[in-house]
Amino acid sequence: MADTEDISDEPALIKAAQAGDTRAFDTLVTRYRSRIYGMLVNLVKDDTEAWDLAQKVFIKAWKALPRFEARSKFFTWLYRITHNVALDYHRRRKITGDGELDDRQLNAKTVISSAPTAPSETPRPDEALARTELGDHIQAALAELSPEHREVILLREAQGMTYDEIAEIMDCASGTVMSRLFHARKKLQATLAEARANFLEKTAAPGE
């Protein structure tokens, strides 16, 4: 659902933006705004706040752009700023301790239950309903995870980021990312056991 998927012109856009070209930067904003906004909605549980914070992310990115050296992907770098903006938001609101995100802040209903990896053909109505129900269960289960586990799941499973990219964003080792994924999946597995069974039953092809 990115506004523009063709990223072949991205290095040129970044270079132009670094030189002060606001139109080039505007194109980058358009390209990444839905991902940044969506991530923030999940992290701060408030659409309006997420909208404001997403703007803040891009303004910070503009300020920091001269120091962007393309050692990482642009959107990974942008996510790192997003991660920090969300942490700052929670610190300032004094909702959490030691800058950690609060589990209660995840808006479980804001994660869209359709994904890039889903089959492209239209699902049967009963399958679509089952998928929506499973999506609701997943979101509820995510809300029960610790902030670190939730974020690592969102970045890996929803964004398809590599361990190294997630490690860069969350400022930890890639081994820590793998461990967090391992434990987060274990917890989700336990929480979702019943929902998964129902989903598999409902989506089984007729006659199976």
Partner: peptide
């Protein structure tokens, strides 16, 4: 999870 989650809005 990868088939049912996206964070884009």
């Amino acid at each position: 999870l990868s088939g049912n989650l996206t964070i884009e809005r």
